[in-house]
Design a protein around this nucleic acid. Structure first.
Lengths: 328, 328
DNA sequence: CACGTTCATGGAAACGATTCCATCATGCTT
DNA sequence: AAGCATGATGGAATCGTTTCCATGAACGTG
């Protein structure tokens, strides 16, 4: 038991060559056919697997991909992570996962852990703003933002869902149904969506109807319940994520608001349970998994010189949670 | 830009001491108060952070925790992962995440990646059986199983929910409502639950009513739909996971089976949407996050000599998806 | 006063890979 | 035939840390 793994030195000795040659053969360098053959055979016999430890130290970097999401419990980030994992697996790279809870401080801490591990490539759903990421970026990390980008950092490639179009589509749909008092129930880091929301609504916008929760379920519920109680005159809500949508449904139910009769609801992010809900939820679907996959691709490609990001389409899926504006 | 991080050597020079002393001070070894002070000051000034790369190589292990789950998209595993992350964060250890898709081969591949990274501690929801884990374990990995254990491996500590009690409670509840033809809709690795299911049902057991899906949503739906179509006489279903519960609800709806009038449904795992469902789902809650946390604790503690595992309680939460047996 | 013990300390050897560089053989050109 | 380019090869340095060991000082004890 506890057999020491074979090292490159063992292979070299067994094959009667130098370690340099073994290294070259294994990493595709030049070598004579006979030598290559012999080394490969011996390596297979000894079940040699190069240690990432040695390599990492020599190359002063750890290869793996760091992944920072606010909350792995949130189905959206679960799917995003799945996409990153799929891409990383194809490349044979490990993924180091950290959660930030949408807290800048905690995010900084996690970045510290990654840095310490020698991780050089990070896919992140940024919590902190531009300045937070400054030191990180100049520490030589290639970073790709996913799902949202840190405010004012257009020098970092980002893979985003087309939030603008998503919000516009939702608003158009709701106004088309006759709604005028439409609320936005948002979460952290959704400034852009809010601004598009304002813009799309034009004169109809009512600042009191724009509320923002922190990341947690409790906070989302409190925000939704507060909104509904405070402004019973609103007739439609756009929830900026599945946690917020969940909270909205719960709060509406608690306050005896019928969906969609009293209240129309559109939720960002299509989740499996949206269909199981009563009524089934009308949603703006976002390709969470694709976002993760594409972000991982980008970060593996080394970002490239051009920090051009990717914008992936969203889709309005009409189910049963929106109806015509209730009679006044 | 691209400032090289300070190394221990830099600190040593700047403080006018040897590298050995710096290392000792930083890892809590003995040193004179003055020296300690000076080293700490200098280290802080240089913003020195020890590189995990060097340390890992020297110690021939990587510190971090490997986490292997079937599917990070599944809310249950999301919460489990969250628990592991919470514990790891407290210990300042990175977590390397891999998904197995409940496939033994893919699991082996992921283990390979972890091994290559020098990971020595693994929390896993095992997909493969005992033999698969044999080489891994004797490779010196300290392993803790979570949520289920590889068949016939009682030498590995495991943190489990009390499935036996969960199944029994569910069966008791259903039989108490008058149900006789009760189905079990299971997933991979649920042999133990099935055996308890048989046992609890005694003479009532009907092998045709025990079906098993693979991990995917599609497979779960197919299994549920097949079951309902093939045996319209069944009156209650116990779904062995939230994916399976989701599939059951969907399939029932598709076949115009009313829940709970035509069909009573209990689902393993309490998820937020269980409450939003129509009707709200009666569930056996499992402490997914705790499972993860405890497993991580165990693996960090080094497993200890005694491979005693932990059994966490489940809880029946009655909502609205179960009713008395329909009139025949 | 001599000797042994205890401590702080620094030099140097690992750890396992990659990679620079020198060496040597081979084959081609002039 | 001599010179030169080419390509395969191995030795040795390197990455940043921990840890073993030797050194020397300080101190207490017989």
């Amino acid at each position: 038991m506890n057999v020491r793994r074979a090292t490159i030195k063992d292979v070299a000795e067994a094959a009667g060559v130098g370690v340099a040659t073994v290294s070259r053969v294994l990493s595709g360098g030049s070598a004579s056919p006979e030598t290559r053959e012999r080394v490969l055979t011996v390596a297979a016999q000894l079940d040699y697997r190069p240690s990432a430890l040695g390599r990492n130290l020599r190359q002063r970097r750890s290869g793996g991909i760091g992944l920072l999401v606010p909350d792995i419990t949130d189905s959206f980030y679960g799917r995003l992570a799945d996409g990153v994992l799929a891409c990383a697996r194809a490349a044979g790279e490990p993924v180091i996962l950290g959660t930030t809870g949408d807290d800048a401080e905690r995010e900084a801490e996690q970045i510290g852990v990654l840095l310490e591990q020698g991780v050089e490539r990070v896919v992140a759903v940024p919590a902190g703003s531009a300045e937070i990421w400054e030191p990180t970026l100049r520490a030589g990390l290639t970073t790709v933002f996913a799902h949202r980008c840190a405010a004012g950092r257009d020098d970092v490639p980002a893979v985003l869902a087309d939030d603008r179009a998503g919000v516009r589509t939702a608003i158009d749909y709701l106004t088309g149904l006759g709604h005028r008092r439409i609320a936005y129930l948002g979460g952290p880091g959704q400034e852009q969506r809010v601004s598009v929301f304002r813009q799309s609504l034009g004169a109809l916008v009512d600042e009191e109807l724009i509320v923002s929760a922190r990341g947690s379920r409790d906070s989302a519920y409190a925000a939704a319940a507060g909104l509904f109680q405070h402004r019973p005159d609103l007739t439609a809500v756009l929830a900026g994520g599945n946690l917020l949508g969940e909270a909205a449904v719960l709060a509406a139910r608690e306050l005896d608001l019928r969906v969609p009769k009293d209240l129309s609801l559109i939720m960002f992010d299509d989740v499996p349970w949206a269909e199981l809900c009563a009524p089934p939820l009308t949603v703006i679907a976002q390709p969470a998994q694709d976002i993760g996959y594409r972000a991982a691709e980008l970060v593996l490609r080394g970002g490239g010189r051009r920090p051009r990001g990717v914008l992936l389409p969203t889709e309005l899926i009409v189910r049963g949670s929106c109806g015509p504006r209730r009679a006044a």
